[in-house]
């Protein structure tokens, strides 16, 4: 398993290089003037532009630019924003908040999504099944930002159960409502996936064997059918992590959370190219690492997977 992990990490290197290159190219090489709006309403003075072009290596060819950027990146240097703060310090400050938010969201997603899926599968065609199918379909159809506004309006403002926006400390209590919003889409998918898998596994031969051993229905379902149905769900949660990160941008914007998403949102609005690249790079790295982690976890819960 250790060997496998190392090999997977090595395999990740070209993907990381390719991905960061694409990100870099998208930001700096696309047509358009990176200095528009940097100096108020007037065009920037030539001296400023020259200084900035030198600082961001914009006069080199793209591969050279990228090479320099990557070299800095390897040394943990994510560069500086136009405003002069290091990108890394901005990320480091925002990261814990997003981490907490994502963690709560994943817990919600797992606990509620899986329970709902099990409930639906065990009542196939019944009231709960239809209720869960319809409600998850609705959740899937409504974009996260609309759900965010609805939740903010209903639970934050009208009913006032939760604070409508999150303060600078981002306490767990403040984060619950945004985490629900962030989790909603994935939760719906997890519920549907779990329902489908479990319904199928309930008809599997080994479940029939478990029943024929004289186990209670509870044990047959809980220990034999559910456990096997969780395997694809775990994979899904990993693959879906990217969507969760994307959703975090929207959710943090709506609830005024000062996390990675909020930072990205702000950097886009102020056209802070270096910060945008830095943040997206970090998010992509996190995404890739989470997927690696899920693959390894996958092997731990499914003994049929062998790491050769």
């Amino acid at each position: 398993m250790g060997r496998y992990t190392i090999r997977r990490l090595l395999q990740m290197i070209p993907v990381v290089i390719g991905t960061t290159f694409i990100i870099y190219a998208m930001v700096w090489a696309l047509p358009g003037d990176p200095f528009v709006g940097k100096c108020g309403d007037r065009p920037c003075p030539a001296s400023y532009i020259a200084e900035m072009r030198a600082k961001f290596n914009l006069d080199d060819s793209l591969p050279v630019q990228y090479g320099k950027y990557l070299w800095n990146l390897l040394q943990g240097n994510f560069g500086e924003s136009f405003s002069g703060r290091t990108v890394w310090s901005e990320i480091a400050q925002a990261f814990p908040v997003t981490f907490r938010l994502a963690l709560i969201a994943i817990i919600i997603e797992i606990v509620i999504g899986i329970s709902a899926g099990v409930l639906a599968a065990l009542n196939r065609g019944g009231f709960w099944d239809n209720l869960i199918l319809v409600s998850t379909l609705i959740v899937i159809s409504i974009p996260v930002f609309v759900i965010g506004f609805l939740a903010q309006f209903t639970f934050g403002i009208k009913l006032a159960w939760f604070p409508p926006t999150v303060g600078p400390n981002a306490t767990i209590y403040e984060l619950i409502l945004p985490a629900f919003v962030l989790a909603s889409l994935s939760l719906a998918y997890v519920a549907r996936l779990m329902r489908g898998n479990l319904a199928e596994n309930l008809r599997a031969d080994y479940v029939r064997t478990a029943t024929s051993k004289g186990l209670s229905r509870r044990r047959v379902i809980g220990r034999h059918a559910v456990r096997n149905s969780l395997i694809p769900v775990v994979t899904f949660i990993g693959a879906d992590f990217g969507a969760l990160l994307g959703g975090a941008i929207v959710t943090e914007g709506i609830f005024n959370i000062r996390g990675i998403g909020g930072l990205l949102y702000l950097s886009i609005r102020t056209r802070e190219g270096a910060t945008v690249v830095g943040v997206v790079t970090v998010l992509v790295l996190v995404f890739l690492l989470v997927n690696l982690l899920v693959d390894i976890l996958y092997g731990a819960i499914d003994p049929r997977i062998r790491y050769e």
Binding site: M26, G242, V280, V284, F287
Partner: peptide
């Protein structure tokens, strides 16, 4: 490796 929304943001913001 680049989640859709993040990539979309990148392309469009540039």
């Amino acid at each position: 490796g680049i989640p859709l929304l993040l990539g979309g943001i990148l392309v469009l913001s540039s």
